[in-house]
């Protein structure tokens, strides 16, 4: 039986630049069930981290509209005090860069204890220390008693990321948001950290939102995948469907830009995600990346269409999309882009 843990309805998070608000997350609706891993994929500027920070309530100056229902309770615009009750307890986050996320002046043990002191004040000092040691063991750190008294600079990147994970899971959160948890790590560490997150998820039955730009990571970890482009979800499907039968041009381009066996040239749509101020706010946001498609291919006001149960694609342009002739593409679009 699946239980809804998180339900996001028409979330819009806007930032003020100058005198205007620009939406970095625009009309995003998502659900996450218990014991499920939802992968959110996109490149820089697609709004995936802005979405994660919105859920955690970490944007202090952004304007947020819409609803985020966590266990049925709306957590948009609740007071900071109420948020602090949730954060680190029922929901927690694993940050990208293990060096900057840890306090360099605090011992590892003390940093993990912090969240326990806040949310489990009834624990005695001894219990707390035992729990920290237990957590360090759970995340696979050798000699936990010794590491307890070490400082972050004495640990390697992979070990630091394990400490971050230990902090995140200290109170057995129901919702775990992992924002590029392995981007700063070497590949062997990456594999170990991913295996660890998967194991912890299975043990605790938490819902996990895994944010990444790496499709390999998604393929290994996620149950469902949402692809974001320019603040919107352009495609969402279960992981097998998405990798076997991607529809949206952006998803297809992402999948073919990863080197695969026996491929001489990588198929990729030229260009980059436009910056917040330059986003096309009307019509299909991806239209300007694929100018060789006729404008009639796009919807006027693109919405997500459910093409199969559970498989949503935005806009109608996917029906007409084809990769442009490669040789021509490099020349023509290389030039127009830099203007």
């Amino acid at each position: 039986m699946t239980q809804k843990l998180l339900e996001i309805k028409n979330l819009k998070t806007s930032f003020r630049i100058g005198d205007e608000y620009y939406a970095a997350v625009d009309d995003v609706s998502l659900t996450l069930n218990k014991n499920e891993v939802l992968g959110i994929v996109g490149e820089s500027g697609s709004g995936k981290s802005a979405l994660a920070f919105s859920i955690m309530g970490l944007h202090t100056r952004a304007k947020m509209e819409g609803n985020i229902l966590f266990n049925g309770k709306d957590i948009v615009n609740i007071s900071p005090a109420q948020l602090n009750q949730l954060r680190g307890d029922e929901m927690a986050m694993i940050f990208q860069d293990p060096l900057t996320a840890l306090n360099p002046l605090m011992e590892i043990g003390a940093q993990i204890s912090e969240t326990l002191i806040l949310h489990r004040p009834e624990m005695s000092q001894k219990e707390r220390k035992d729990r920290v040691i237990e957590l360090l063991t759970m995340v696979g750190i050798p000699r936990p008693e010794y590491v307890y008294e070490q400082f972050p600079h004495e640990l390697s990147g992979g070990m630091r990321q394990r400490v971050i994970i230990a902090i995140a899971i200290a109170n057995r959160p129901e919702l775990l948001i992992a924002d590029e948890p392995t981007t700063a790590l070497d590949v062997t560490n990456q594999a170990q950290i991913l295996d660890l997150i998967r194991k912890l998820k299975n043990d605790m039955g938490s819902g996990v939102i895994l944010i990444t730009h790496d499709l390999g990571v998604v393929a290994e970890m996620a149950d469902r995948v949402a692809v974001m482009y320019a603040g919107q979800i352009v495609e969402i499907a279960d992981v097998f469907t998405l990798f076997e039968n991607p529809k949206h041009p952006y998803t297809r381009s992402l999948l073919t830009s990863v080197p695969a066996e026996g491929q001489d040239k990588l198929l990729v749509i030229q260009g980059i995600v436009p910056s917040l101020q330059h986003l096309p706010r009307e019509g299909c946001r991806f239209a300007e990346r694929i100018p060789w498609l006729d404008s009639s291919a796009h919807e006027e006001d693109p919405v997500l269409h459910e093409i199969e149960p559970g498989h949503f694609v935005r806009c109608t342009c996917y029906k007409h999309f084809h990769f442009q002739d490669e040789a021509k593409e490099a020349q023509v679009h290389g030039d127009t882009r830099s203007k």
């Binding site: 790496d214 499709l215 749509i269």
Partner: peptide
Amino acid sequence: LDVSVQAQVLNFMRD
């Protein structure tokens, strides 16, 4: 670089 930009640069380096 981002994945799709990566692909663009790699293609170009081979060319």
